[in-house]
């Protein structure tokens, strides 16, 4: 029996090509397996063979979504894969988006099972869990050893056409798919049971969870920008030299507020970026690339905006939990409002 042909997708980091300095690398294909592919091959066993590994830099993918997809599909086509595995991406946001995008594209183009793995807070989960099986992983590559067997087990089920179990059992992020089955109690009985449990204050499990859309209605627009007070907020990790508040370069637990009174532009002598999730070389040279102080000062002088707040708020976006980001936003918003700010520019790297 010939082996099931597998193609694996990795970013520049997991393919051991380089870190942020290589994040612009264009799609490339290597025969056989690389890095995490070893664990994947082991978990899949002798009936499977990773025939090729396709690699792409996270920045290249993120900045060229369409082109990256079509080029990768072209690269892997000659290998006629029967199974596609991307990542896992753990809590890496750009990598997660890339894994989800390419796995979805492969599944559609070749009609083969494609799956990936991510930590629950990776934005890729929310974007792709309806389209894909995304195995739930830890938030860092330390979870590789546990993640690969789960990916392999589910992959084999998909290949063999076995029944897929509930998300909690097979270890994937809930896809919102409903499956019919016969329950030993009829619906009305279960509903009354659930109601009684609720009345008694006991724990109960709904059979039909309501989707949770946390959306904020758009604020009303600024009518007259020449009277507005504008403030800058950024997740690009820009801080004064020496990082006085010791903001973390990843998974931030705090934000800072930094004074720019009397400054016409962001000088590299005053500010640096401590962000650990992108190559900061450009921004270290010119921090205005993240905090556009120079042009906003010009516009303030020209009267195009009423006033620019003499500070900016800053934190590190990478790996930062949603819970922390919400706390930062709530606190920053409160302070901005108290200071009479009427419009906010939030920049992200």
């Amino acid at each position: 029996m010939s082996k099931i042909k597998v193609v694996h997708y990795l970013n520049q980091f997991f393919a051991q090509i380089g870190g942020e300095e290589m994040a612009d690398m264009e799609p490339e294909l290597r025969e056989g397996l690389i890095g995490p592919g070893i664990a994947l091959q082991q978990a899949l066993g002798a009936d499977y063979e990773i025939v090729a590994t396709v690699i792409c830099g996270d920045n290249y993918f993120g900045s060229n979504l369409e082109e990256a997809q079509s080029r990768i599909l072209e690269l892997i086509k000659p290998y006629s894969p029967q199974l596609f595995v991307a990542g896992p991406a753990f809590n890496a946001g750009r990598y997660g988006v890339a894994c989800g995008t390419i796995a979805t594209a492969v599944e559609k183009e070749f009609g083969i099972p494609a799956l990936t793995g991510m930590y629950v807070e990776n934005p890729g989960v929310e974007m792709f869990k309806k389209d894909l099986y995304i195995i739930e992983t830890a938030n860092s590559a330390a979870g590789m050893r546990k993640a690969m067997p789960k990916i392999a087990t589910l992959a084999k089920k998909l290949i063999n056409g076995n029944e897929i179990d509930l998300p909690a059992e097979d270890g994937y992020h809930e896809r919102g798919i409903r499956v019919n089955y016969f329950h030993d109690k009829r619906g009305s009985t279960r509903a009354v049971d659930m109601l009684l449990q609720k009345v008694k204050g006991e724990e109960y499990q709904t059979e039909y969870p309501m989707p949770f859309f946390d959306r904020v209605p758009p604020a009303t627009p600024i009518i007259d920008m020449s009277k507005a007070k504008v403030a800058i907020v950024s997740s690009g990790g820009i801080v004064p030299l020496g990082n006085p508040d010791r903001i973390e370069s990843s998974s931030a637990t705090k934000f800072g507020k930094y004074d720019v009174t009397g400054m016409d532009r962001m000088s590299k002598d005053d500010f640096i970026s401590i962000h650990g999730g992108y190559d900061t070389a450009y921004i270290l040279e010119d921090p205005n690339l993240a905090i556009p102080l120079d042009v906003l000062r010009e516009m303030e002088k020209e009267g195009q905006i009423g006033e620019l707040a003499n500070y900016f708020y800053s934190t590190t976006g990478t790996g930062t939990s949603v819970g922390n980001a919400e706390v930062f936003g709530t606190e920053i918003g409160k302070q901005l409002l108290a200071d009479g700010v009427t419009a906010v520019i939030l920049t992200s790297t």
Binding site: D214, R215, V216, P218, A219, T220, P221, I222, V233, S235, T315, A325, E326, F328, G329, T330, I332, G333, K334, L336, L337, V341, T342, A343, V344, I345, L346, S348
Partner: peptide, 14 residues
């Protein structure tokens, strides 16, 4: 952060 700031009614451009 965008959402929590906008919740106060402040328009935010991301």
């Amino acid at each position: 952060m965008v959402k929590e700031i906008e919740r106060y009614g402040l328009p935010v451009v991301h």
